[in-house]
Design a protein around this nucleic acid. Sequence first.
DNA 1: GAGCTACGCGACGGTAGCGTAGCGTTAAAT
DNA 2: ATTTAACGCTACGCTACCGTCGCGTAGCTC
Lengths: 205, 205
Amino acid sequence: MAIPKLTAKGTSVANKERVDTRVERTRTTVLAHTYDLLVQDGFSGVSIDEIARRSGVAKTTIYRHWPTRTRLLLDACSKLGVNLEIPTQGTFETDLRQVLTDVAQRLENAGWAKVLPSIMDASERDPDVAKVQTLLQTIWAAPVVRIVEDAVARGEIRPGTDADVVAAEALGPLYYRRWFSRQHIDPALLDRIVTNLCRSLTDAR
Amino acid sequence: MAIPKLTAKGTSVANKERVDTRVERTRTTVLAHTYDLLVQDGFSGVSIDEIARRSGVAKTTIYRHWPTRTRLLLDACSKLGVNLEIPTQGTFETDLRQVLTDVAQRLENAGWAKVLPSIMDASERDPDVAKVQTLLQTIWAAPVVRIVEDAVARGEIRPGTDADVVAAEALGPLYYRRWFSRQHIDPALLDRIVTNLCRSLTDAR
DNA sequence: GAGCTACGCGACGGTAGCGTAGCGTTAAAT
DNA sequence: ATTTAACGCTACGCTACCGTCGCGTAGCTC
């Protein structure tokens, strides 16, 4: 089975064996189309047959690279974990505002906003998916966590601040608007979040 | 087709026509089993065949009452819109704390916590589902909205406060923990939310 | 108790998906 | 240029689901 080799290649860069061009091409093509389908139809709406149809890669070939549909899906999900830029130049307040503005922006445009609910749904029943989702969430929350830690280090906000809690307080309301109440993210809301967080974290309490 | 009659009966209570016992029983049993399956397998995991199997009601009979799978699903979803108790006795702070404690509790136990992501996912692609979801969210957010309005009326918090924004700020972080970061809802988090909201809504700014 | 009507049952046609098998072809590696 | 490995293609068996049809039966209403 091809998986071990591929995994090894992915994780260990030391492995300098040349990889067959065809393999590389197949993998990237399939993953790309899987990602597109994922965004379009959600986690449970992706079928191998459809991927084969669109990508031009034969279904049998796909199964030569991924042992099962779920594995391919999980692999494609990793493409969602883009590295976000982390502002570190300003004060806690300006950094936070910038991050949240970015998030609000991405919530309305980016593909992952359409996919995430389907992943959350799958997570409720499949532990492997849940693991990936938790990982992704860690990545997406990283900017907030980072600027909190930096601000603590600078002595700008209260020491001992739980960055995860701040992430929940900052991102939660935005996510709520996008997926639960399905309302537009008001700039006023964003402003309130930033202002209140700053106040609660800088006051001596 | 039986649907018009049933719908009419459902909406107009004035219609005192006796309803066939068999019809009533079929409807309730099917809905109950649909609900169970919904909670167990999510919106997209429910099949008519499985409902028929479990409920003992013939598939043909189910189709005599609901024209399509989606309609049945939507009907079953309405069972999720339970009426929540709304505390109105205390101060804004105590009321809010109680509501959020309830929500946090329900997030960890109740069935809808397992279903909601699947509904959100379906909402991304099906406008009818989205409509139902928005309605459900309105119901679930009602307690928060209510105590905000009451507190405004009492002059306890700033007039002109946007109850929807407060709902997002209060519920968002809890939802975030349950579905996105998949972390336990820390009592400290709950405390921070309540305290900060109260401060930001009572201060003269 | 007669008549109506909802129900159960078995079967059907059609679609879609998963994952596998065999075989011939092509193109990369050396 | 030869070898070797990946690929495409067709077809398959299997399962699951949707929604429908016809017919006989059981049970409710009046």
